[in-house]
Nucleic acid binder design. Structure first.
Lengths: 346, 346
DNA sequence: ATGAAAGCGCTAACAA
DNA sequence: TTGTTAGCGCTTTCAT
């Protein structure tokens, strides 16, 4: 048999190579390569012969060799932030699952990494870029105004952001969820149930995401001729903060409903109500944000705004594909609408 | 300057290569390679010169080329199962975070994938193996007796399991958490609080993990001379099942405490208590398993058994390193102890 | 429609 | 201690 001459005649030789397939099919290596990457070029019978050989041998192209040659890895990098305890903590993980699936369907895999120094926006990215280990990145933690977006933009690395560019001049593709629309729906829902004093507990002003979500609440209240004065609180994203903020608001403004920027904060509100022997959904309504497992599993259930993360992932990968392919869609963005999941708390 | 002759003299040439560094440092490519992989071989001043050049150019070895040459990718594959809704759902995600961190510290990255056909144990693995895209796998979903462990063993792919091999003849390295010790601690805790009728709600008999956790409960009760008869229920891992099982047990055996195989089940119990106007932690005690966000955030808090996933990840990566290096530790395993996090529900 | 040649960037083996 | 040679497995010219 015409086995590739520079392979040892025996011993464990590892997975089959192009040359093995070519020998078995009685064609040149190039023809096998074409059969895989450009089947239209082959005559039907040759193609079939090659494909049979591929199947027989269980051949799959060697990734490293292909990557080296094509200068692409078909890998998408995603930096993971440390797991936050004491938090409803749903978005990132749900998104990761969705991204893995959407990526596979587009022929990509997801490479996970983390920064050894989380405060450095470049940490972790740098090495992957310079070693051409990934083709592109997905940037998710745009929480604090997205420092790595500008870093990546400067390094001319292809990436798509899950989250709008909150800096004016950014021109990378992005996909985001319309937080304001979500909180607007939540607020409208509460108004429809007869509430007139709907409070807001959100994040600090530095968080553009928080401000976006807050806008949906205030816009809706004002649209109904209602005042927002004294009904809003801006705090850290912790249960304790939500708990405290709810206490203050309850004492000073006596709202009958709360809209929160996260399920974590909403959980704090619930805890406050619990302590005051108030029943969520009967005495006071509460709406969270993220539709986390916590919202789903709380006794009675927590009404919450659910982000369409599966769709976000699909869009992100789609943008990525365009970016890596024909270099289109520069700076374009997509805004997706979340929807309210109503449960016992409202 | 002695730039590599076969590079274009101008235009965007991409990241610097070994040859660029060699030219700048005035040495051969091989010497640069040695400076990186075997610095002890170089004379001190040469080494410094090379390192300066590396820094100046911001050089990082090209991954694909190195992978091709060394037949290794420094990538660890992890198959993700679909995100389960309506579930406390903590273990996998917490583990992923820990694994990413532990891997980085060992010089590996994590490649995430999923099977297009989740019922096929080989789905997704196969292609990665044959294309030598990853060096090894971490197998986590040993829930149903670990079908892919035997598949991987048969394919002679290096892998480490998070989860004991429940089939007798398995001989791969593994790391696991001693579930029985966890539920034993939980049960002992309840007994110490004066409970005498402690019920168990766990998974179906087919789940060896479930049986393991159950054993800790029954062993402890019997160790205290107490009967387990009529106090155990084996159901699906859903809130609804936990809810129903708690109802039946409450009616038929009137336990004063529950130990559950998961936070999901414990949540069902809580819901049942809630409906009966029983207060968890006062009227009836409840302990869950996993220390999920749900357990942490529930009003009052859910006492739960916490798995040391960070440690598991470190051990897994350690085993992996040995496996890929000197081929030791075949079939060895490590069992880690979880600990109880006591909260309001008990 | 198929094949031959070249080379992606790196490192193992050997030579100097 | 450093340099030379060869080749990992693949795909992109270019020739046939």
């Amino acid at each position: 048999m015409g086995r590739d001459p520079h392979r040892a005649a025996d011993g464990p030789t590892g997975p089959p190579t192009l040359a093995d397939v070519a020998a078995l099919a009685g064609v040149s290596r190039q023809t096998v390569s074409n059969a895989l990457n450009n089947p239209a070029l082959l005559r039907a019978d040759t193609l079939e012969r090659v494909r049979d050989a591929v199947d027989t041998l269980g051949y799959t192209p060697n990734r490293a060799a292909r990557n080296l040659r094509t200068k692409a890895s078909r890998l998408i990098g995603l930096r993971l932030t440390p797991f936050a305890e004491e938090t409803a903590n749903a978005t990132v993980d749900r998104f990761v699952h969705s991204l893995v699936q959407a990526s596979r369907e587009a022929g990509y895999h997801v490479l996970l990494f983390d920064g050894d120094d989380p405060s450095d926006p470049a940490s972790g990215y740098d090495e992957l870029v310079r070693s051409t280990a990934v083709d592109a990145f997905v940037v998710t933690d745009t929480f604090k105004g997205n420092p790595q977006a500008s870093y990546l933009e400067d390094s001319r690395v292809p990436f798509v952001a899950f989250g709008r560019p909150w800096t004016p001049a950014a021109l990378h593709p992005w996909v985001d969820v319309d937080g304001a629309a979500g909180t607007a729906e939540a607020t409208a829902h509460l108004l429809a149930r007869g509430h007139r004093k709907v409070a807001w507990i959100g994040w600090r002003k530095e968080s553009p995401i928080g401000e976006d979500r807050r806008a949906g609440w205030s816009r809706t209240l004002r649209g109904h001729g209602l005042s927002t004065t004294g009904l809003a609180s801006r705090v850290e994203d912790t249960v304790r903060s939500g708990h405290e903020a709810a206490g203050v608001l309850l004492d000073e403004a006596a709202p009958t409903a709360f809209v929160c920027a996260s399920d974590t904060l909403a959980t704090g509100v619930l805890r406050q109500l619990h302590e005051r022997r108030l029943v969520a959904g009967r005495d006071v309504a509460v709406v969270g944000f993220d539709d986390s497992p916590v919202a789903q599993l709380l006794p009675g259930g927590l009404t919450s705004v659910r982000q369409p993360l599966e769709e976000v992932a699909v869009q992100v990968v789609d943008r990525l594909g365009k970016l890596l392919g024909h270099r289109e869609t520069f700076g374009s963005g997509t805004l997706l609408a979340p929807h309210l999941v109503v449960r016992g708390s409202s």
